[in-house]
Amino acid sequence: MKKRVLVVDDSAFMRKLISDFISASEEMEVVGIARNGEDALVKIKNLSPDVITLDVEMPKMNGIEALKKIMSECPVPVVMLSSTTKEGAEETIKAVQYGAVDFIAKPSGTISLDLHKIQEEIVRKVYTASLVPITKLLGQPSPTVVSPNRKVNHEEIDESALECKTARPMQDIQKPGLIMIGTSTGGPRALQHVLTNLPSSLDAPVAIVQHMPPGFTKSLADRLNSLAVITVKEAEHGELLEKGTAYIAPGGFHMRIMNEESNLMVHLTKEEPPRNGHRPSVDVLFESASTLGSCKKVAVVMTGMGSDGTEGLMKLKETGNVTAIAESHETCIVYGMPKSVIAAKLADEVVNVEGIGQSIMKYMG
């Protein structure tokens, strides 16, 4: 049975283009269109769509206001469409935090005459969103830790690891430790869970690859920085990593972590092609860390489509001194990237998203 889609946009031109793209798919059909948020709420209740495309910038009731009402009154998976303006990026990041499954950046503004450039992305993301159980968007289960080989009671985790402590150097390791996180669809909310559970005394930097187009990662970093006690920022080329700071790879750039004497340094490049369709790529980040020698590492792979991170984690495992944590199926919005890591037998622990911060501290502490 085809997935039922409601297209919401104040532009008749955009509604027509998006509807045509979706209707051309064998897996989906457009069951209705809406001109604004108020219209969308009525149509959702009458048509019961499986998924909605929702424009961020609309009159009467904008996309953010509409999304809040949708998630509270008639929850359904939503994919946001947004311009890449600073305001558009900020609103889009809010939308993902409020329950949107994913977002699509319009290539040239509110009314994009060249929307056909991202036709494949629209179809793929809308269909993927239609498969997400609404329960995963409304709430998450309690933290539980599950090993690929044995079950672990979360009481076994040292909860004192989350308490603030005086920062101290890691014994027997000259270089600082390094925490790496890779994620895609559903990642912004997963990152919020993890980063807000890391203490200000965190004795290592955090390097993050979140699949996002250029123009959105700065807004994501700013929002997460306002919520976490550690510092969160968009990474800059050539900067030295500091303990207690999380660095998010800018959209459109691969990020590597390099040795700079006794320090770790960010290296950004956009000349290289995307890896498996992604730039930044989790594989590129993980592979770069495999050259850091005795540096103690924790690698985390969370919700997202595809298998980005698996090849890089293989390289990391070859060099030893790395612990791999995969997000569990129970809390993943899209169980792709962690599933690939687990299938390759690379995960040391499989953890619900709320418990990942705790697990990181167990291994780094």
Results as ranks from 00 to 15, higher is better:
Leu195Val: 02
Ile342Gln: 11
Ala190Ser: 09
Asn197Trp: 10
Glu318Arg: 15
Glu261Ala: 02
Gly251Ile: 07
Gly355Trp: 07
Val350His: 13
Pro273Gly: 14
Tyr335Ser: 00
Leu17Glu: 05
Leu313Pro: 13
Ile70Phe: 06
Glu73His: 04
Glu271Ile: 00
Ala326Met: 02
Ser25Thr: 06
His154Phe: 08
Asn62Gln: 03
Met361Leu: 15
Arg124Gly: 02
Glu260Met: 13
Glu27Thr: 06
Gln210Ile: 01
Ser48Lys: 12
Ile230Asp: 12
Val78Asp: 13
Thr323Asn: 12
Ala344Phe: 05
Ala326His: 05
Glu242Trp: 01
Leu17Ala: 11
Ile122Pro: 15
Lys345Asn: 14
Glu120Cys: 03
Pro59Glu: 01
Leu313Val: 14
Glu261Phe: 05
Asp203Ser: 08
Leu6Lys: 08
Pro77Ala: 02
Arg275Ile: 15
Arg35Phe: 04
Thr92Gly: 11
Ile157Lys: 15
Lys339Val: 02
Val194Glu: 03
Thr84Met: 15
Ser112Trp: 04
His254Phe: 03
Gln119Pro: 02
Ile325Thr: 01
Leu241Glu: 11
Leu67Phe: 05
Asp158Asn: 08
Ser201Lys: 04
Tyr247Trp: 12
Ser142Trp: 07
Val266Asn: 07
Lys16Cys: 00
Val266Trp: 05
Lys117Cys: 00
Ile111Cys: 11
Val8Tyr: 10
Leu285Glu: 04
Glu155Gly: 00
Thr128Trp: 00
Arg4His: 03
Asp10Phe: 08
Glu27Leu: 03
Val31Ile: 15
Pro250Leu: 10
Ala190Val: 12
Leu17Thr: 03
Val194Ser: 04
Glu26Leu: 10
Gly177Leu: 00
Thr231Leu: 09
Met61Thr: 09
Arg4Gly: 12
Leu198Lys: 04
Ile44His: 11
Val126Glu: 10
Leu264Gln: 10
Tyr363Pro: 09
Val42Ala: 13
Pro205Tyr: 12
Ala344Pro: 02
Lys3Glu: 06
Val31Ser: 09
His329Met: 13
Lys233Val: 15
Met212Val: 10
Ser72Phe: 12
Gly252Tyr: 01
Pro213Asn: 06
Asn259Lys: 13
Ile248Phe: 09
Ser25Ile: 08
Met180Trp: 03
Asp283Arg: 14
Pro148Lys: 05
Pro169Ile: 03
Asn153Val: 04
Gly139Lys: 13
Met265Phe: 07
Tyr98Cys: 02
His116Ile: 00
Ser147Val: 05
Met364Ile: 13
Asp222Lys: 08
Arg4Gln: 10
Arg256Phe: 11
Gln174Asn: 10
Ala66Thr: 00
